[in-house]
Each structure stands twice: as C-alpha cells, then as structure tokens.
Design a protein around this nucleic acid. Structure first.
Length: 524
RNA sequence: CGCGGCGUGGAGCAGUGGUAGCUCGCCAGGCUCAUAACCUGGAGGUCAGUGGUUCAAAUCCACUCGCCGCAACCA
C-alpha cells in the first residue's frame, strides 16, 4: 500500500497579551474542519497552532502583572489551549515562540540567510517615542496629532544601527512565483492586492531590535534581538524540525496551507516566501487569508469591529457555556463565509440554533428513532433486494456529497453546510411527510419499514457529511444505529459506496421512555 | 485619483449572460411520528444609481453615490 498523502497546515500564531475572542476562534475552526476532513479522507495530517510570544507587548504585560515573561507565556498558552480543546480543535502540536526548539531553529535560519548574503547592516531612522522605547510609524504619529498615541508626547527623530533583510532582491522572483502558482494566494480576491503591493516595489526590512531583553538574540550579533515578524513566521518550520531534524522537516515541508487573517496577507505572501528563498527552502504551497468576524451591537444594530476599546469582545466560553461547543462551531462555520467576513449577534445565534440545529437536524433524528423504537422495538430487518425510496427530485445524494467535498476543499464551509441542509435534511423531512410512516405502519408494516430504512440511510449520510464540522453530534447520530463500518474509518465515499449494508439494523442510542435525548434542546 | 472589497424582498446570504433563489421572520392552511417540531401555500425585491455592449444583464464595460477593510507588527 502506498504511503498516505501528507497534509501540513498551520494557523496564525496569536499574541498572548489577551485571551482569545470569537474572531481568533473563527480561524482555528476553519482550519480544524480542513484538518478533520483531510484525515477522514486518508491523509496523514500535521496541524500546527501556537502562540507568538517574542513581542514587547508580552514582556510589558508580564511586567505589569509582576510575572516572569516565560511563566506568563506558559500560563497563557495553557489558557489558549483550554479554549481550543473546548472547541474540539484537533491540532497536533502547539508551538510557543519562547520554546527552545523555536529559538534554536530561528537562529539557524537567520544565520543561514546571513551566510547566503541576504542580510546587511545599516541604520534605521524613524520617529522614536522615549516613553514607549520604540519607533512609531509616521501614520501612527500623524493620526494622533503629532504625538505618541500612548504617551501624548512628541516623538524624536532618531537613528540607530540595525540589520536589514534584503527583501527587495526577491521582488522578481516573487512575481515569477505568483505567476507560476496562481493558486498560491487564496481566496482569489486577495491576489490582486498582493500583486499590486509587490509590483509597487519592495523595501528591505529592518529585522533587528535593540535594547530588549525579551526575544531571540541574533546569533551573529547578540546585542540585537530578532524582529518579531521575522521570528514569528519561522514557527512554521521550527515546529517540524528545521535545523534539528532534517528528515522530519523534509517530510512535512512545504506546508500545504497557512490559514491566516486577511490583515496579515502581505507578510505571508511576500515577506515569508522571500525569506524562504533567501534561506534556500521552498515557499509554502498555499496561503489562505480568511475574513473577519464583526459583532452586531444589539442596541444600535451597528456592526462593529471586535475591539477592547469598544468593549464588545465576546469570548468563546461565553457562548459555549450558554449553548455548546458544537453550536458554536455550527454558527460560525455556517453564518460566516470563511473567505469573506461574517458577523455575530446573540439574537442571530439563537435563531440559527433553533432553526437549523434543534429543528431540522435534532428533530429529524428524534422522530426517526422514536418511530422505530415504538413500532419495531428498535429493530429493522431489511430485505437486501428492496428498492430504496425516491427521496430526491433535484439533486441526488452522490452529487451532493461531491459538492460538499468541493466546498470543503475550497474552504467554503458555509456553502457546504447550506448544501447539507437544503439538499439532504429538507428533502428527508419532506419525504417523511409524504410517506407518513407513522400512519402507514398501521396498515402495511413492511412498507413503513422500508420508509424508515430510507430515513435512517439519510441520517447516516448526514452524520458522515457533518463529521468534520460537528464531530460530536455526527458521532452521536452515527452511533445511534449499529452501522457496520466503524465511525473512525467512515469517509465521504461511504455515503454511497457502503449504502444499505445493514440487513439487521438496530437503534443503539440510549432511550428514555421510548425517546432519545435531544441533540440540541430548543432555546426559548 | 494609494490598493482592495462590498451594495439582491423586514434581517442574513446564494446566484457571474437566458423566466429572481435559500434560511429566519410574517400571514393562512395541513399534519400530529417528532424538541409547539414537520409539511403545503401566500404577501414582500424596478438585484444602489446612470449610461453602454448584447437577441437577452443582478450577471460584462464605463462612470456616479454609499458602506467597509488594508496601507509593515491590534485575527
């Protein structure tokens, strides 16, 4: 048997100076669906996440709390992972950029780029705030009326020695690269932005900082630390053994996809591949810049960007404890198009929860099980030669499965879910109403049984299709019956390839008073 | 003229050349197996505007108006 195809994917690493909010979670969910889908379809998957810790902000925050920065980072990493686990994000590794493995790999990488002649010493001149002890951009200063936005004092022009990464040398190579791999930047709409940016001329990047005792010292000049962006991007390679385990590194690199927020597209589509060129490694195959989640202000009806200053930050746990992790996953994956933007509101959440999860999905599961339990003692013996009923008039199940797979592969999760609801759940409820097995069972128990087998078959299909999206719910539905294949091994193709295999179908879900526990209890 | 995106019934979205579609909400009816769920029917849109291309445009082109994101470290 041939080796399984490999799939290496990452998410952006997060600053741990505040806890994750629903926007941060959105990215991890989108990535998680992809990882689960690839695993299910037979790929050997490595799914990396992590935290970005070598920034001044983190050191400051730790100092405020009178904590050691590393201890602070470790505690935050624990808290982040607690949230990711609660959301059933199936990451394989979690890297912290304050980890030794990252710092060692990082130094090797920058040394390599230096040895290859792409780093040179120069001077950086800019507006410096003595309060912040850091440079400010012209824009920042201009926006706050000529003073530092934090300290309200005018900055001074200052120049200091630094190291530059010769990004400009790679401009042509980058443009050729985009041309050769037109799918590199996803979604398509972000492509023009990056092209225009690179065509507009790349500048060399100052990749060093001085006077910081938190961060990674530059190996060839330890009084400098590595600029946080240069360091952060390297997590994608240090996590898989760059500089320490060549075999492992070669196994996984290049990454199949980096999932990132649309705001950092440029770093990933220009700076990062240029860094790869400079170090003599391949660039990643794909960068996917997802959209943002905005929050609808329930009072004013205005859609706002999530921000601390607006006080509209919603944390995942707020929602998980009121509803469930599965509902959380469903809402964001269904309501917010991954390539574009979406919005959250409690009202909308409740509407979607009741309509899609409680009514269409949960209720179908309940009614099917109850009928079988009541009338057949939870046991249907199927005739192997019985003709399945005609459920679909527009699109058949196999076509739907293929559409869903296409949508997942393109990260159009909302459209995948929409297809499952519109093309499977809706017709199944319609079919049940047309056939009325609860009436039919009184006059023709055999015919009613065939209808029930058809309905169960639909539930089996739904559970498989939902496997990457709602792992727990899908498993509960699947395990509600004694389907022959194991849950772990079931994949999309089985929807049609393994249909109607059960000749001795039993309801295995736990029943109480002849009824099954609601998958999603309605919210008032 | 910095770059880019968006503007479709009350709300949220799909639809990229050929009789305007989905979910929620609303109105009426049906059903009663089911989580007051499910099914059927209905009201509601000049697809931001103007001009153009075409036998035919929400869909292509031009311009106008409105909203938003990015512009080297706030997912």
């Amino acid at each position: 048997m041939a080796d399984a195809p490999r799939w290496y994917q990452t998410t952006a690493i997060d600053y741990p100076n505040s806890r994750p909010h629903i926007g941060t979670a959105f990215e991890k969910l989108g990535a998680d669906v992809q990882a689960r889908y690839r695993r299910q379809e037979g790929y050997e998957v490595f799914f990396l996440m992590g935290n970005d810790e070598n920034t001044v902000k983190v050191a400051k925050k730790a100092a405020e709390l009178d904590q050691d920065p590393k201890a602070y980072c470790d505690e935050m990493a624990r808290q982040f992972q607690e949230v990711w686990r609660a959301l059933e994000v199936s990451y394989d590794d979690f890297i912290q950029t304050s980890d030794k493995r990252h710092q060692d790999g990082c130094r090797k990488f920058i040394q390599k780029v230096h040895d290859n002649g792409h780093i040179y010493k120069g001077t950086y001149e800019g507006l410096y705030c003595e309060g912040c002890e850091s440079f400010k951009t012209e824009k920042e200063i201009a926006e706050s009326g000529g003073v530092c936005p934090d300290h309200k004092v005018p900055p001074v022009r200052r120049s200091e020695p630094c190291y530059y990464f010769a990004q400009s040398k790679f401009q042509d190579q980058l443009l050729r690269f985009y041309e050769e791999y037109p799918d590199f930047i996803q979604p398509e709409s972000r492509r023009n932005e990056v092209l225009a940016y690179v065509q507009g001329g790349l500048q060399d990047v100052n990749i060093s900082r001085t006077g910081q005792n938190w961060g990674i010292p530059i190996p060839f000049d330890p009084q400098f630390t590595i600029y946080v962006w240069f360091d952060a991007l390297l997590n994608y390679v240090t996590a898989i053994g760059y500089g320490s385990d060549e075999e492992r590194f070669r196994k996984w690199w290049p990454a199949d996809v980096h999932f990132i927020g649309k705001d950092i597209t440029r770093f990933h589509c220009a700076l990062w591949p240029a860094m790869c060129f400079a170090a003599g490694i391949e660039p990643p195959r794909n960068v996917f810049g997802h959209g943002f989640v905005y929050v609808k202000n329930e009072e004013t009806g205005v859609t706002e960007k999530i921000s601390k200053s607006l006080g509209n930050v919603v944390e995942p746990m707020d929602i998980i404890s009121k509803f469930s992790a599965e509902a959380f996953r469903y809402y964001f994956l269904r309501e917010c198009p991954f390539p574009g933007d979406g919005e959250f509101s409690w009202q909308r959440f409740a509407d979607v929860y009741n309509a899609d999860l409680a009514n269409y999905l949960g209720n179908l599961y309940s009614r099917v099980i109850t009928i079988i339990a009541k009338n057949y003692d939870g046991h249907l013996v199927a005739d192997s030669d019985a003709e399945p009923g005609v459920i679909y008039t527009q699109v058949d199940l196999e076509t739907t499965v293929k559409q869903v797979e296409g949508h997942i592969e393109a990260c159009r999760y909302n459209q995948a879910l929409q297809a499952i609801w519109q093309q499977v759940l809706v017709p199944t409820n319609q079919y049940a109403d047309r056939k009325e097995p609860w009436k039919l069972v009184k006059t023709d128990k055999e015919a009613a049984k065939q209808v029930m087998l058809d309905l169960v078959e639909q539930l089996r299909a739904v559970s498989i299709l939902l496997k990457p999206f709602l792992p727990k719910t899908a498993e509960t539905i699947y395990r509600g019956f004694n389907f022959p294949q194991t849950w772990e091994s079931v994949c999309c193709e089985d929807v049609w390839a393994q249909s109607r295999r059960a000749t001795d179908l039993r309801v295995t879900a736990a029943l109480e008073g002849g009824k099954v526990k609601a998958l999603f209890p309605r919210i008032a």
